[in-house]
Each structure stands twice: as structure tokens, then as C-alpha cells.
């Protein structure tokens, strides 16, 4: 519908300190809208993993969350290096994160599988050298 609610965020890629801020804000907004805790948690986890990925792998990007009648849609778009082999990236444990990221508590190769697990549908389109776009939906 045309009256759907959209939240849009610029996710900064140069500063890890702020990584995750957009997801915290979305969680607050969804709480205010009165969604149940399970739905909110699934959206939160899926978006947070994707947001952190944009920061550590892609130098930031845009996050857009739309509240539609039957689902909440999360779109994450970046102009990062892209993902050469999406099937491989989806495997639990596969990660190209450097040690500096591991020491920050991330880089176990569990984010993408976790995004899939917490969403009802997930689509990745990516081109090497151009960027990555991920669309996830969580049914309400």
C-alpha cells in the first residue's frame, strides 16, 4: 500500500563504533508500533547482522526498513566489493573478515546464515566491484 511506513538509514562505514545504531533505532520504532517481541527480535537480528556486514565488509551503505501490511521488509544496499560466490558466503563458518574484526567480536562466518534463519525470505544480489543488495522479509 502507499501508506506503508519506511525508515531509512545511512550506515557509516568508516567508524566501527557506530555499527549497529540503525538496528537499535529500528527495534525502538517497531516496539513503539506495538509488534510482538518475537517478530521484533527476528527483524532486529537479521538487520543487525546485515548492518554489521555492510560496515565491516563493504564500507557502509543504506538500510531501509518498510513496514507493510503482511511483512516487514529490510533492504540493505552497499557499494562495497561485492560477493563473488554467494553460496559459499552463505555457508556457516565462511568468513573473509581479518583478525582486527575478530578481536571486535565478529567474523565467525555466521551472519548470513543467521539472517536467513531469522527471515521468511532473503534474496542476495551482488556484483563484484559494484556492490551488494540484500532484501529480507519477516512476515507479521
Amino acid at each position: 500500500m502507499s501508506d506503508k511506513l519506511v525508515f531509512r538509514f545511512d550506515v557509516q562505514g568508516d567508524d566501527f563504533t557506530s555499527a549497529g545504531q540503525a538496528s537499535v533505532q529500528v527495534k525502538k520504532n517497531l516496539r513503539q508500533l506495538g509488534f510482538d517481541t518475537d517478530t521484533i527480535k527476528r527483524v532486529s537480528i537479521a538487520m543487525y547482522e546485515g548492518e554489521i556486514n555492510m560496515v565491516i565488509h563493504a564500507g557502509g551503505g543504506i538500510a531501509e526498513v518498510s513496514v507493510c501490511e503482511e511483512y516487514i521488509e529490510i533492504v540493505l544496499e552497499d557499494k562495497g566489493p561485492g560477493i563473488a560466490d554467494i553460496d559459499k558466503a552463505m555457508q556457516a563458518g565462511y568468513s573473509t573478515a581479518p583478525d582486527s574484526i575478530r578481536s571486535l567480536g565478529f567474523g565467525a562466518g555466521m551472519g548470513l546464515p543467521n539472517m536467513k534463519k531469522n527471515s521468511d525470505s532473503m534474496e542476495i544480489t551482488s556484483e563484484v566491484g559494484v556492490g551488494t543488495r540484500i532484501v529480507m522479509r519477516v512476515n507479521i
Partner: peptide
Amino acid sequence: GLVNPQVIRTALMMD
């Protein structure tokens, strides 16, 4: 034993 803002944000995401 990890100390950064993502510890708090992660906790928030997980309720």
C-alpha cells in the same frame, strides 16, 4: 570480556 558498543547493541538485539 569484550568491551565495545557492539556488546551492548548485541545484548539489545537479543533482549
